[in-house]
Design a protein around this nucleic acid. Sequence first.
DNA 1: GTCTATAGATCGATAGAC
DNA 2: GTCTATCGATCTATAGAC
Lengths: 186, 186
Amino acid sequence: MARIINERADVLPRLAEVFRSHGYEGTSLALISEATGLGKGSLYHFFPGGKEEMAAAVLAEIDAWFRENVFAPLRVASEPNQAVDAMFDAVERYFEKGGRVCLVGLFALGDERDRFSQAVSAYFSEWIASLAQALETGGRDRIAARDLAEETVAGLQGALVLARSLREQAAFLRCLQRLKARITMP
Amino acid sequence: MARIINERADVLPRLAEVFRSHGYEGTSLALISEATGLGKGSLYHFFPGGKEEMAAAVLAEIDAWFRENVFAPLRVASEPNQAVDAMFDAVERYFEKGGRVCLVGLFALGDERDRFSQAVSAYFSEWIASLAQALETGGRDRIAARDLAEETVAGLQGALVLARSLREQAAFLRCLQRLKARITMP
DNA sequence: GTCTATAGATCGATAGAC
DNA sequence: GTCTATCGATCTATAGAC
C-alpha cells in the first residue's frame, strides 16, 4: 500500500504525455524524470533499454488501447452504423476533441518511423482493416469498404494536424462530423 | 563564377531536406554541416540566429513557394475545376507522390508549433482560404466552399501521414484521387 | 567567407551507496 | 527501488586565425 510506483504500467501515461508533447528527439531523460517524479536510476530500473524502450512501451500501450477500444469492437460489430459511431466517440475522447496529438502519427512523420517501424505500420493497417471489415459487414463491397476505411483513417490524422496548426479544436470536430456523415450508411 | 555558396538561398533546399528528414530537435548542426558542406562558422555567418533562424528561413521559403505555385493560382482562377486540378498536380509533385513529408505539418504536431506559430497557422489558413475562394468562384456557396476546402487540406495532410506510416506511396495517390473526385464540380 | 578549436551546457546512460 | 554523482559523447554557439 505504501508503494508509490512499482510497475512500468504506472508511469506509462505520464511517459506518453511527454513524448506526445516533445516528440522522441525532444524528450530528454530530464523531462521524463520531472514528469514522472522518478530519478534516472529508477527509470533505468523499469526500462533497462533506456529512452528507446520507454517509447516502445508507450507505443505498445497505445496499440493495446486501440485494439481493445477501437479495433476489436469494429471487428465483431453486427450493426456497423452503431460500431462506426462508437469508433468516432472513442476517437473524440481519446484525442480530447483535437487537443491531443496522435503519437503514432507524429512518429510516422519523423524518422522515428524507422526505429519503430513495426508498431507504426501495424497501428494504421490494423485500424484500416478493422474499419473496412465493419463496413463490409454493413453490406458494402470489399473494395469500397477498404477505400472508405483508408479515407476515414487518413482524414482523422489530417484533422489532428489541421486542428493543431490552427489552434482550433473546432476544426477537428468539424472534420470528424464530415467523415462520420460520409461513412454512415443511408 | 567561382562562388560555390554565397547566399542563404543557395543552402535552403538542402537545409529543408535535413529538417524534413530529422525534425527540428533531431536536426543537429553537425548534420546540417554535412548536408550543406558548410562549416559551422559559415552557417552562423549566413544565419546569425542559429538553428532557429535556419528553420524559420526554410519555413519562409516553403510559404513563398506555396503562395506562388498554389495559393495565388487558386485565387485568380476563373475556371475552378482547372485550378483545382492544377493544385493537385502541384501538390503531387511537391510531395513527391507521398515520398516527401510536409515540414509544416510535422512542425504542427510537435512543439515546434509554438516556436513557429505564425508560419504554421498562416500556411494552413492561407491554403484553406485560397482553395475556398476558388470553389466559391466555381459557384458553391460560401459555407460549402469553406467546408470542402478544409476537408481537402486536412485530407492531404492525412494522406501524407498514412503513406509514410505504411511506407506505401500508392496510399497517398489513392487519397489524392478521392479528394480530387469529391471536389471537382459535376 | 570559411575554417578549426573550443567553450559551456546538456545529452543518454552507468555506478554504487543506501 | 531510489537516489546522487558522474562518465563520455554530443549539443549549440562563439572566437579567432586565415
